[in-house]
């Protein structure tokens, strides 16, 4: 049984905790910290806190678009958008929704007057 990072591959699943081998007893050391000390937990909490801030910053960047795109990223995004609009599913969708869009427009027109 391996102890592996999930990562992103198909082989990414960690083994279940039931991987405990029958008959094996827990290890006793020597070890760096037999019982996790308060200092260790405090440092791990520090990591958690910094990570939390980084996660919130990332989420904020998603909704506020504070992250400036480079010229290459802008062109790439525009090309993707163009490709999407030229794709068959998009065009079929546009055709299928014609009646709905016509009705919507008809409803809006009197309101706008």
């Amino acid at each position: 049984m391996t102890e592996q990072n999930g990562g992103v591959s198909p082989a990414a699943q960690p083994n279940s905790e039931s991987a405990h081998q029958p008959g094996a007893s827990g290890w006793t050391g020597p070890e760096d910290q037999t019982v996790v000390s308060g200092r260790s937990l405090s440092l791990e909490s520090q990591l958690e806190l910094v990570n939390r801030v980084k996660s919130l910053e990332a989420e904020l960047a998603q909704v506020t678009l504070t992250r400036q795109l480079t010229p290459t990223e802008q062109l790439s995004a525009e090309q993707q958008l163009l490709a999407l609009r030229q794709s068959l599913p998009w065009r079929v969708g546009r055709v299928v929704t014609i009646p709905v869009r016509v009705i919507q427009r008809a409803i809006r027109r009197p309101r706008g007057r």
């Binding site: 991987a19 405990h20 081998q21 094996a24 007893s25 827990g26 290890w27 006793t28 050391g29």
Partner: peptide, 8 residues
């Protein structure tokens, strides 16, 4: 904790 002592 389940790691066998022999491995250690």
């Amino acid at each position: 904790e389940v790691m066998p002592q022999t491995v250690v």
